[in-house]
Amino acid sequence: MATTSTPGGAAPRTSLWGRLDERIGGYAYIAPFFIVFGLFGLIPILFTAWVSLHQWGALSDPTFVSFDNYARLLADPRFWNAAFNTLSIWVISTVPQLILALFLAHVLNETLLRGKGIFRMAMLVPNITSVLAVGIVFSSIFGRDYGLMNFLLESLGLNRVDWQASQPSSHVAISTMVMWRWTGYNTLILLAAMQAIPRDLYEVAAMDGAGRLRQFFTVTVPQLRNTIIFVTIVSTIGGMQIFTEPLVFGGTQQAITGGAARQYQTLALFLYEQGFRNFQFGYASTIAWVLFIVILGFSVVNLLLTRRIARD
């Protein structure tokens, strides 16, 4: 267009609208995302940062307290307890989950398996079930007096477990819910990545005399490295914010504190307790920001790792 115009000639003059379109049109097209993100993402995050510097109770006005809330949080044993619980539930749920997902994906990738479509769809069912429903079902499975799990344990001649009472047992029960919900989802992602591995790698490996197991560990797993890291990042972000499962697992008025000894109170539950049970909005916002920074930290570490692996 510019090349066809000659100085002083009767160049086709683009209208004002057309020129505006060229200059700002692109921004307009991407604006909806940024407007929505700003309204529901950025502004609340910044507002939370502002609130976290204030003391703000129920039906009262905020007063500025600088970084007092942060100092208080770091000295609060309930915070460290919640941080430990969150980390513990994350590890107990993520590690077996990924191993299981890798195994399931491998099975689904087998050429011998029939009815693959059905199995692959079935994998996603737990993920699209309402987390509340999952929680209710699992908390009755793990009920102390009338739970299915204790019934099974007893019929195997083992002792009943009061699942909610102690830290390890409650973490196992909650992790089971998380695993049930996310294993299938991760399986599908790993499966997609597995299908992208070139077949000839396996042929070469087979020619070199590698058995199926050897092929799995020396071809499949290394090829999946990036995907495994991606899956780990996603489950880290989810795991740090785990909320509904422990809440429903508790079931009663004790749920928000995560049991009588806070044995399964996660960071997100602690945040909720301070914000909407004790109505300390400043303090709750502080927890939110610390949680945000922790997740950001994890994500950065993950990103650096991925980059380094990609470069290798």
Partner: peptide, 9 residues
């Protein structure tokens, strides 16, 4: 507190 005693914690 009573709950922690009841649970043997």
């Amino acid at each position: 507190g009573l709950g922690r005693i009841e649970a043997g914690l």
